[in-house]
Design a binder for these strands. Structure first.
Length: 599
RNA sequence: GCCUCCGUAGCUCAAUGGAUCAGAGCAGGACUCUUCUAAGGUCUUGAUGUAGGUUCGAUUCCUACCGGGGGUACCA
């Protein structure tokens, strides 16, 4: 691909400093928000290099500005000047931006026809990355915390794919453990008729949810029932009791069927499902091995890792009943991941409540598993979704399921969507679903993954301003223009656009402030994606999409397109709308948010 | 107690150590639909918990304090 404008300038700055070709960049070449006073591009290189060269930052900045001005092709810059306390700011000429637009338009069109998509990069080309996320537990509710993990993990996966990596989406599901025993005990004892094969999945899940809550309460309430449930837990592991096996199999199957339905709604497809039940035995083997090597210790009948030796805390890996805990099973899981795939990186997305557990786990992994396992495993905790009343608890029933949230959001949307007569009933239902999912995903991804989200139905999910629907709306409006152009002027608008752009005549007619601002925004995209992938920061993409949509909306408001009677300029504006829409679609795609042709 | 994460407008969030405009959105106030979808556009009010330190420059790094979340052996 042709070198971007930004890359060219960065090269000129390095040339001016006499460090071209160095591995370390000259400094940052940023895109200031305030183009009027700080330029279209700005570098702090002079401040970084002034000291080692014994110069005043302003003097070095002036020198860089002068050298770059001289070396640039005529008409490239409008202005390049030093600014206190030592920045060098660059303003590009309108012609330079027109040329940049032509090259973006070509790149976008190439991407739309099977070439590499505009904005993607090869920062992780050829790397195999596993992203484990969502991790719901069968027998328990799929709550908004899982929704958060799913949304974030899916976006991570897409960012890695955009960087050229081969991504394996994995989902680790807790189909054994005390929570399962509580649920099975509840199924047996709650005194309600169990749903049968033909019953609705919703009914089955409601039954399971009640059963779990019943079992969980019973576990806390009495020592006697606690003993029963503990014993049941062992029976589930042993698989020797037919009645227990039957209840277990039914509950597990219902849950998995239900989860699959949610993944489809959320737009996730997993390549590999891992189950805790499969990790018990390999996990125990790893612990046995480690026990023999003195890494673990026996204590009160349990096998523990004395973390204090390593500045961590002690954790139980096998309990005094001989059952593996979460930690032991996790050892089996991570071992297996690397046995099955030649992973360069293994990312695990979970809630941040387990960061301390994971620290211990990584320390143990580095001691008992092949060294690359711990080295290449990266824990990416996300914050918790909190209710204004505090933390959710599935035990007390104070929990919001993903499905309930989606339902409530759709309800609030329905009124708004139905005002629009343009859509048929079927289209409307599909649009409502897509907008609801997009609104939720965007609200999660626009902030940094580590932070908690205080969730309030009324306040957290806006349909206006910096929100998912705004972006989908901006996209739909651009597409609407293109659709109409096709109907009114030319059955093959795309080709007319292509001819206009390739010929150069059309782009020459672009030049209003809103057009140029949109082009400047579009030019940022590849850089934003590369940085977002490197930092694993979907919020950078979200922020970009919003800014792009703002620029597109301004362009839409201020610039006649279909009504433009200059056909060459109209073609150029259509090309601009088309490219902006494509970039917006790609950007939202990185967030796992779908776009709609009509809203 | 110890470990750890976090304190930015009334609210929800931004800001790879950068710019005497610390950005948005929501909420509040004022405009804007015989004009390509008003879920839009335009204008407006309002903030870095406290005290030090490092730096040419600190929301960002360090220390202490205050306030909150999470964790702290047989749940995950």
């Amino acid at each position: 691909m042709e070198m971007s404008m930004k890359a060219k300038i960065a090269g000129m700055v390095e040339e001016a400093l006499g460090i071209a070709g160095n591995a370390a960049p000259a400094g940052e070449l940023s895109v200031p928000d305030d183009a009027a006073t700080q330029g279209h591009f700005s570098t702090n290189a002079a401040m970084r290099f002034a000291k080692e060269r014994g110069m005043k930052p302003m003097d070095l900045a002036a020198e860089i500005a002068e050298k770059v001005r001289v070396s640039a092709p005529a008409g490239f810059f409008e202005k390049a000047e030093a600014a206190a306390p030592g920045f060098v700011n660059f303003w590009m000429s309108d012609d330079a931006w027109r040329m940049e637009f032509a090259s973006i338009a070509v790149a976008v069109r190439r991407g739309a026809h099977g070439g590499s998509v505009y904005g993607t990069n090869d920062g992780m080309k050829g790397k195999a990355v596993m992203v484990e996320f969502t991790d719901p537990n069968p027998f328990k509710l799929f709550h908004i915390g899982h929704l958060m993990s799913n949304t974030i993990g899916e976006s991570f996966a897409r960012l890695y794919e955009a960087a050229g990596a081969k991504v394996i989406r994995a989902n680790y599901q807790g189909d054994v453990g005390l929570h399962v025993a509580k649920a099975v005990w509840g199924m047996r004892r709650i005194g309600k008729v169990m749903p049968g094969e033909g019953d609705d999945i919703g009914l089955k899940m409601a039954f399971l949810g009640e059963a779990y809550a019943y079992g969980a309460r019973a576990y806390e309430d009495g020592l006697e029932t606690r003993g029963e449930i503990d014993a049941l837990n062992e029976e589930i592991y042993a698989k020797k009791n037919d009645e227990v096996n039957g209840l277990y199999a039914a509950g597990r199957a219902w849950s998995l069927e239900y989860f699959e339905m949610l993944y489809a709604r959320l737009g996730t497809k997993f390549e590999r499902y891992y189950f805790e039940s499969e990790m018990a035995s390999p996990g125990l083997d790893v612990v046995d091995d480690g026990l023999g090597r003195g890494i673990f210790e026996k204590s009160d009948g349990a096998v523990v890792f004395p973390g204090e030796k390593y500045g961590l805390h002690t954790r139980v890996f096998v309990n005094s009943r001989g059952l593996p805990t979460y930690e032991a099973k996790e050892l089996g899981l991570n071992k297996k991941k690397f046995e099955e795939y030649p992973l360069d990186l293994s990312v695990v997305v979970t809630g941040n409540e387990i960061v301390d557990y994971f620290r211990v786990l990584l320390a143990v992994m580095s001691l008992v598993l092949p060294p690359e396992v711990a080295e290449r495993t990266r824990h990416m905790p996300h914050g918790m979704l909190r209710l204004p009343t505090g933390k959710m608890s599935s035990r007390t029933g104070d929990v919001i399921t993903a499905e309930a949230l989606l339902g409530q959001v759709k309800e609030r949307l329905a009124e708004k969507v139905s005002e629009r007569s343009a859509l048929g009933e079927e289209e409307r239902a599909a649009a409502t679903e897509a907008i609801a999912v997009g609104a939720i995903k965007y609200s999660i991804l626009k902030q940094n993954p580590g932070q908690d989200i205080v969730f309030d139905f009324e306040k957290s999910l806006s349909f206006e301003g910096d929100a998912g629907p705004y972006l989908q709306y901006a996209y739909a409006r651009l597409r609407s223009i293109l659709r109409k152009a096709r109907e009114e002027f030319d059955s093959d608008v795309e080709r007319a656009i292509a001819n206009g752009i390739d010929g150069g005549a059309a782009t020459g007619k672009i030049g209003t402030e809103s057009e140029l601002a949109l082009i400047r925004r579009m030019a940022e995209f590849p850089d934003i994606v590369a940085r977002a992938a490197a930092r694993l920061a979907p919020s950078a993409v979200a922020a970009y999409c919003y800014k792009l949509a703002v620029a597109a909306n301004k362009f839409y408001e201020t610039t006649p397109i279909l009504k433009d009677e200059d056909t060459e300029r109209r073609a150029a504006r259509l090309a601009l709308a088309s490219a902006a829409a494509d970039i917006l679609r790609t950007g939202l795609g990185l967030l796992g948010i779908v776009t709609l042709e009509k809203i």
